[in-house]
């Protein structure tokens, strides 16, 4: 070890690496504050102008859509006549797809509750403030945990024939294996990119992927009796 007093003065301003700024002061120097200057603009008019502009463009697009496409309106509600399939609004079709495989307690209560709880705790759970790549430290242990979790999840999904959810999980798992076998020094840029991703990133990406696939399947590929249909062959 070198002389402990032999520090280098510097201001680290990368919040991701050091959320609390630490300044080391070497011997024979005094603490020095660097001017913290950054170009600023006034909220009025600069920000408000951009906000209004963005919202106006949005309004034009939506008005255009409202002129071109009509909102659906079917026959009056009839409790004696169940349409087949009875579909929820599109943003719930991912859950409805799960409902097809699992009992309502799981698909309708447990999964949504778990989703909300995980979303809420994401910023608190992230003890890994440095956002270091998942497999860059404790590689062996983390790989073990990863394999147990991933294989357990996949076996579970396949056992219940939830292939729609198993395929995205498998793809994410393969990407994680690639990440585990790469490092920030890897040759390929995408390997470098993946290797630096922390745990929270993987979980969220998996969630996003499942959300898109399940919602798309529920919206486009499900017909009478929740059977598999091809949208272009109806």
């Amino acid at each position: 070890m070198s002389d402990p007093k032999d520090f280098v003065a510097g201001v680290d301003s990368d919040q991701r690496r050091s959320p609390q700024r630490v300044v080391f002061v070497t011997r024979r120097t005094s603490a020095q504050v660097k001017a913290n200057y950054e170009e600023q603009v006034q909220t009025y008019p600069e920000v408000l102008f951009r906000v209004v502009l963005a919202i106006e463009i949005l309004a034009i697009v939506l008005v255009g859509m409202a002129l071109l496409f009509n909102a659906p309106l079917e026959g009056i509600a009839d409790p004696t006549h169940t349409p087949n399939p009875a579909k929820a609004p599109w943003y719930f079709l991912g859950l409805q797809e799960l409902l097809h495989y699992f009992p309502p307690v799981v698909a309708g209560v447990l999964v949504p509750t778990m989703l909300i709880v995980s979303l809420v705790i994401i910023p608190y759970f992230n003890i890994n403030i440095e956002a270091a790549g998942l497999f860059l430290h404790h590689r062996r242990r983390r790989l073990q945990i990863f394999y147990v979790t991933a294989i357990g999840l996949l076996v579970f999904l396949v056992a219940f024939h939830v292939y729609v959810a198993a395929v995205p999980s498998l793809i994410v798992a393969i990407a994680m294996i690639v990440a585990a076998n790469s490092s920030p020094q890897s040759k390929s840029a995408s390997c470098r990119y993946l290797s630096k991703k922390p745990m929270a990133w993987w979980v969220m990406t998996w969630f996003l992927f499942e959300l898109i696939v399940l919602t798309a399947v529920g919206t486009f590929f499900r017909g009478p009796g929740w059977s598999w249909v091809l949208p272009w062959r109806s």
Partner: peptide, 19 residues
Amino acid sequence: WDQLAYWAITVGSNLSKAV
């Protein structure tokens, strides 16, 4: 209050029974 509305809400609200 059309068929779409009625049955979507029926499907959705039935989930709450599973709590």
